[in-house]
Amino acid sequence: MITLNVNGSTFDTETAPETPLLYVLRNEMELNGAKFGCGLGQCGACTVLADGRPIFSCLTPIAMLAGREITTLEGLGSIDSPGPVQKAFMDEQAAQCGYCIPGMIMRAHALLLQNSAPDETTIREALEPSLCRCGTHMRILRAVHRASEGFQQQTSAAGEASQ
């Protein structure tokens, strides 16, 4: 048995240890955020965070994740209470079909955790592993810029609170 820590809760699974995380998230935990796109680590649709860093869940065996903190799209917020990056994507209407967007949001979130004020080039490079086919790129970039404003406000608010 492997115990996973997903979005702050633990989940026990009897699934074979080499099984990629994606299938456990989608089919056992019934989380929809991470998508199957290629199974080859080429498109980023399956991206989730492990200890705050983006990983391809389609190529990460669950055995590698025991005891580590996994965050999925659902861990960032909900439809009633979206997280700052999710909110920014809504505000910018940054989706067409939307299939790639969860991966984009996870990658953007990971970037903002490292650097709350990234410039355009940094954002483009951080999102490079994720493919979008609808051509929503410009809106996604705007959404990440907008989210970074939210992150900066949060950071400064947190700073003030701690003083």
Binding site: A16, P17, E18, P20, L40, T60, P61, M64
Partner: peptide
Amino acid sequence: EPPDSGDIGAVIYAGACAVCHEASPS
């Protein structure tokens, strides 16, 4: 072939590497 689950290196290879290094359709 299920890997030797006692060897995390073998499990990682089976779950993350083998798909391209042994079975890639592309």
